[in-house]
């Protein structure tokens, strides 16, 4: 995977990756930290540009840290998300064959599946 290939990806995909990195971190992140935790190779200036674009859209917030900014994702009213998510899960959990039209990333595991998966992951991956 080359830098050039990553820089050429649609802007939306880059924004998604940067926002995901911020949410995954859990604490505020400088552009340098985001650059390190990204799964793709982006120039730091690109990361900074994307972060300020996300900030303009109101998706992330920032505070001064040293000479630059540290960014963190904006949580809306904390409860509304939790509520929607919980309502959704209770809605979907009612059906045994729930993941039909929505293509879920992973299906349910049986206890045996869990054992096999843990065996497949290398010790460091678990």
């Amino acid at each position: 995977m080359t830098d050039a290939k990553d820089e050429r990806r649609p802007a939306g995909e880059l924004e998604a990756s940067v926002l995901a990195a911020l949410w995954a971190a859990g604490t505020s992140q400088t552009p340098g930290q985001v650059q390190l935790s990204l799964g793709r190779h982006l120039a730091r200036t690109t990361v900074t540009t994307i972060l300020s674009r996300l900030h303009d859209k109101g998706v992330v917030d920032r505070r001064r840290e040293g000479r630059g900014y540290a960014y963190f994702p904006v949580r809306d009213v904390p409860d509304t998300h939790g509520l929607t998510a919980r309502r959704m899960h209770s809605e979907l959990d009612r059906d045994s064959d729930r993941e039909t039209v929505l293509a879920r990333f992973v299906a349910q595991l049986s206890p045996d599946d869990e054992r096999i998966l843990r065996g497949l992951l290398e010790p460091g991956d678990r």
Partner: peptide
């Protein structure tokens, strides 16, 4: 109700 960037929506949920 989720925050979106590009084509990804992030839902704040412990699951």
């Amino acid at each position: 109700g989720a925050t979106a960037a590009g084509d990804v929506c992030v839902v704040d949920s412990p699951r």
